[in-house]
Amino acid sequence: MTTTQEWKFTAKDIAAKPDLFLSGHRACAGCGPAGVLRLIMKATRGPTIVTEATGCMEVVSSIYPYTSWALPWLHTAFETAAANAAGIDAALKAMRRKGKAKQHIDIIALAGDGGTYDIGLQALSGAVERGHDFLFVLYDNEGYMNTGIQRSGGTPIGAATTTTPAGKVIPGKIEKKKPITEIMLAHEMEYVATATPYYWKDMLTKVRKGLEVEGPAFLHVFAPCPRGWRSEPAKTMEYAKLAVESCVFPVWEAINGKRQLSIPSKLIALAPQKKKPVKDYLAGQGRFRHLFTPQNKHVLDEIQRLTDERWQRLLQKCESSV
């Protein structure tokens, strides 16, 4: 970390801050990613440029001639969120060298799970390796929801999508969710973290930490999608909470490779009886509806086993890195 003093804020400070992701965007009612974006833009510390990959949030926020962004915003193609950020960073460096830009400008690259796990991975890996100064925020709604709910590398095992429909042949997606944060950690980045919007204070602190890093930082945000998950719009933030409580999506951060659990997950690690079964998280989501039939019970057990396994492995990694 380059700064010594920690960013302190109260709910009232954040609430009083004007939105940079404006109302009037055309996301579905109860959209998780829209809530995430609105909140993370409140953690910016000064002049910021946002670049975004194609995805739900790009589409809903920039329907011509309207824009929902109250700051400079750039979109080019699906795979280019990190490449854009690298280009902006290089341009700013050149402008500073020539004396055309004086102040520091933060760069945030936003992409959904499609634009990170699958399509944008090589651009992201390249930009991180070159050490550009930007924060990459992945809002993970676990599928290509904007184009009609297709599977992505981020879709969890057992989820029904339009390209992995649950039926007689397969019980939803057969493959596991790609551990993207492990891949990013392997790049030996200064800052990698996971967050959910329900624990917004934790998420905002992580955004600020990511911006303060001089060099690339990666933030994986869990963003429930009521349309694609076929869940109730009102329960969006509840699922963001249940995912942490059932250890499907633990929240942690790694500073210079040193990994530690954040408070919501730490509380579960300290009191394992508080850990909820994944059934609590899966129930109510239409994409997992088929798992609650007798013939698919083995898939449900498999999800529980995989979740426990990943959680135990994470605990070990946190212990060994201290």
């Binding site: 404006l22 109302s23 009037g24 965007h25 055309r26 926020s61 920039s62 329907i63 011509y64 001639p65 309207y66 824009t67 929902s68 109250a70």
Partner: peptide
């Protein structure tokens, strides 16, 4: 393609 209007004018 530059979006010139703020979406605050679009009542959802």
């Amino acid at each position: 393609g530059v979006c010139s209007k703020s979406s605050v004018g679009f009542m959802t």
